[in-house]
Design a protein around this nucleic acid. Structure first.
Lengths: 177, 177
DNA sequence: CCTAACGTTCAGAATGTTCTGAACGTTAGA
DNA sequence: TCTAACGTTCAGAACATTCTGAACGTTAGG
């Protein structure tokens, strides 16, 4: 891979970090390690990306915490080196789980409480909050099924992308309790 | 609905704004309008939420732009009033479409380019980037199908939440070109 | 024991995002 | 025409996030 392409990949992946909610630097380091066969040390990484050692150190720590990179030791070398783990899916999965718990669940709970305490005569409000609750409940169910198991979810994703019989114009079935 | 509950709902919805990528104030205004039967004016909204008129004005404009609130005029009143539209789904749908286009698509394109220009002998890197590409391609297909039509997508969501035959342990089918 | 190479931490700097409020334009009514 | 009520805008303030780099702890080798 030529330098320009590698750089483009690193930067794009860095930008997309915002989509998962991880910082630019973290995402760039991850991308660099993904795109490099040899283990890299802190200094190399920081120099290559033009960031400070301190920042690099913190990002590497956090990436290890997410389980997406691994620290390795080369014989005869004192430094720590890092390589990307193979399970990229793991990171996406964990971040999704975390965000659901921290951002989605509390909002849904508050919505339900608001709906409960809305008096009968508030027709319009009940209808609106009810519609919203229905949507979010559906989202929640999908997420629950999807986030149940890290392995299964990847299979589901691939399955869904290929062949789910979405209801084109037929009516919906219900099989679930 | 009592004041405390309404307030809790408004604040939770505000926090969840981050999940869709809209600002706290915008989300809070939207929540307030959802939870109120009567149309509200700029001044009432700003006072209730403790934000400036300027900010309120801008948020209302943007919310109108997303099509999730509507400006109404009360006879004999000079002020503009606002009420929530019923299609909350619309906002979620449009934001999702926009973010896919702006954040997801470029990253996938860069990844594909990186993969193309990775020489054959870089086994490990090709494998890693290949896995990532496979995941993102699956995500893209799901998003494409899902974001095709605003109406259909809501039906899909509810369908998926209830009865999709995810591949428990069977093998995947392919029907798509 | 001393030194140099290295990793880590965190206070404060830099940057990015959101909000405020004063200035301005518009309109209805006097 | 003038005034007051209203909506809008945007420069800069306030705030939040991310990054830097100096200080520090640890360890290997001398």
């Amino acid at each position: 891979m030529d330098a320009a392409t590698r750089s483009a990949f690193v930067e794009s992946w860095g930008s997309m970090g915002a989509l998962w909610g991880i910082s630019r630097s973290m995402a760039r380091i991850h991308a660099l390690l993904l795109a490099t066969r040899e283990p890299l040390g802190l200094e190399e990484i920081s120099d290559e990306l033009g960031i400070s050692r301190g920042n690099g150190s913190m990002c590497l720590k956090e990436l290890r915490h997410w389980g997406v990179i691994r620290r390795v030791h080369l014989t005869g070398e004192r430094r720590d080196y890092y390589i990307a783990e193979d399970d990229i899916w793991s990171m996406l999965f964990r971040i999704a789980s975390e965000r659901k718990k921290r951002e989605f669940d509390p909002a849904l709970a508050a919505l339900r409480k608001a709906l409960d305490s809305t008096p009968k005569e508030e027709d319009l409000v009940r209808e609106r909050l009810g519609e919203l609750e229905e949507i979010l409940r559906a989202v929640e169910r999908v997420l629950q099924r999807f986030l149940k198991s890290e392995e299964a979810s990847l299979g589901m994703l691939k399955f869904l992308s290929a062949s789910v019989p979405y209801p084109g114009s037929g009516k919906e079935k219900k099989e679930q309790g």
